[in-house]
Computed example of a mutant assay.
Amino acid sequence: MDIATLHSIFTVLVFVGFIGLVVWLFVLKRKPDFDEQANLPFADDQKPKQQQKQESDHE
């Protein structure tokens, strides 16, 4: 087995992995998961506001 054959096999494996990744991301209906993850940065902003409101209610 020479180096050209190894390169060809590696190229085919990477291509199959790429196609698998595309199918997993875009075809398997993962939109609810993506929507939840897209809102994660905003979840941190809500916590301090709620804590501030609770602290002001105690005064």
Rank of each mutant, 00 (worst) to 15 (best):
R30I: 03
V22H: 04
V23T: 11
D45V: 13
Q54L: 14
E59R: 11
I3N: 04
P41S: 03
S56I: 06
S56P: 01
F34K: 10
K53D: 03
V16K: 03
M1H: 06
V12Y: 06
D33V: 13
F26K: 07
Q54N: 12
A38V: 04
H7M: 07
Q37M: 15
Q54A: 10
V23A: 10
P41D: 02
Q50E: 15
I9L: 14
I19A: 14
V22N: 03
F15M: 07
V23E: 05
D45I: 06
I19W: 01
I9G: 00
I9D: 01
E59L: 09
L25M: 09
K49W: 02
F10T: 05
G17C: 07
P32Y: 04
V12K: 05
L40C: 03
G17P: 00
V27I: 10
F34P: 00
S56H: 06
I3D: 01
Q46H: 02
S8Q: 08
F15I: 13
Q50L: 15
F18W: 08
E36C: 02
P32K: 05
Q37Y: 14
V14R: 02
V22S: 05
A43L: 09
N39C: 02
V12D: 00
I19K: 02
K47W: 08
Q52D: 12
T5V: 04
Q37D: 06
H7T: 08
F26R: 02
R30C: 03
R30W: 04
L40V: 15
V14M: 06
L25V: 14
D44Q: 10
Q54Y: 04
K47D: 08
K29E: 10
S8W: 05
V16Q: 00
H58L: 13
D57R: 11
L6R: 06
L13T: 07
H58S: 10
W24Y: 13
G20L: 09
N39L: 14
M1I: 08
V22E: 04
R30Q: 14
H7S: 09
D57L: 11
P41T: 06
Q50G: 02
H58D: 13
I3G: 00
E59I: 11
L28M: 14
A4H: 08
T11D: 06
V27H: 09
I3K: 06
K31L: 09
R30Y: 02
H7E: 11
F10V: 13
Q50P: 01
P41H: 02
S8G: 14
Q54G: 01
D2C: 05
H58E: 14
D45Q: 08
I3M: 07
Q54K: 11
A38T: 11
